[in-house]
Write a protein that binds this DNA or RNA. Structure first.
Lengths: 100, 100
DNA sequence: AAAACATATCTATATATTTAGATATATAAA
DNA sequence: TTTATATATCTAAATATATAGATATGTTTT
């Protein structure tokens, strides 16, 4: 739980948006083709489409978010799904509340 | 209350430390020469000494923190005192709690 | 009014972040 | 087992941030 590292992730509008969108995938993304739920989050392609940024940029963003433990990736066939790590997000906010 | 702008401030260890130190000036800084309280916060020089960074760097940091509304400056003679803006800090944490 | 002091701003350099194109890798489909 | 698809990594260029020295500004003191 590194406040500085997580704050770096949050210091970019697109990454903040991704986290917000993943809070409610049904409302923000199309359904997946292979599975009928969002239990493991949303695939990279959908996130890329929604942001309008390049595939490599989004992959890099998701990687930085994963390094900060803010999201959890799950591989399903050729897709990688990303979901929020609610525990860490909650711990970060609590940490700010107490320490900051 | 701009989440991205505030997160940028918090994405640097020194700036986070400054905010933490200002939470309890009595414990973290020497007494001021001209006044016997910390009601308006701490002067730039003391903050600079504590960080060990250059005067211009600290001035730039404090300016960015002020632009993000995280601190409030007050001029007392030739000194500028900086104190936390508790309202904005609280609003930011609440905002993360609800929106993030 | 001059000198001294605290802080802010300017200028410049080093490092980091942003972003995308090209390429590599992993999996699925034909 | 070749081809197509999804994602990750590499490379590079543009922009932003970090940092300090030099200079400017505002205030106090002499």
């Amino acid at each position: 739980m590194d406040i500085v590292e997580i704050s770096k992730v949050l210091s970019n509008k697109t990454r903040v948006n991704i986290l917000k969108w993943l809070k409610n995938p049904e409302a923000n993304f199309p359904s997946h083709q292979d599975i009928d739920h969002f239990d493991d989050g949303v695939c990279v392609g959908y996130i890329q489409d929604k942001t309008g940024l390049s595939q490599s940029t989004i992959s890099t963003y998701l990687n930085s978010m994963q390094n900060a433990d803010l999201v959890i990736p799950t591989r399903h066939g050729k897709w990688t799904y990303y979901k929020r790590n609610e525990q860490v997000i909650k711990a970060y906010v609590e940490s700010l509340k107490h320490d900051l």
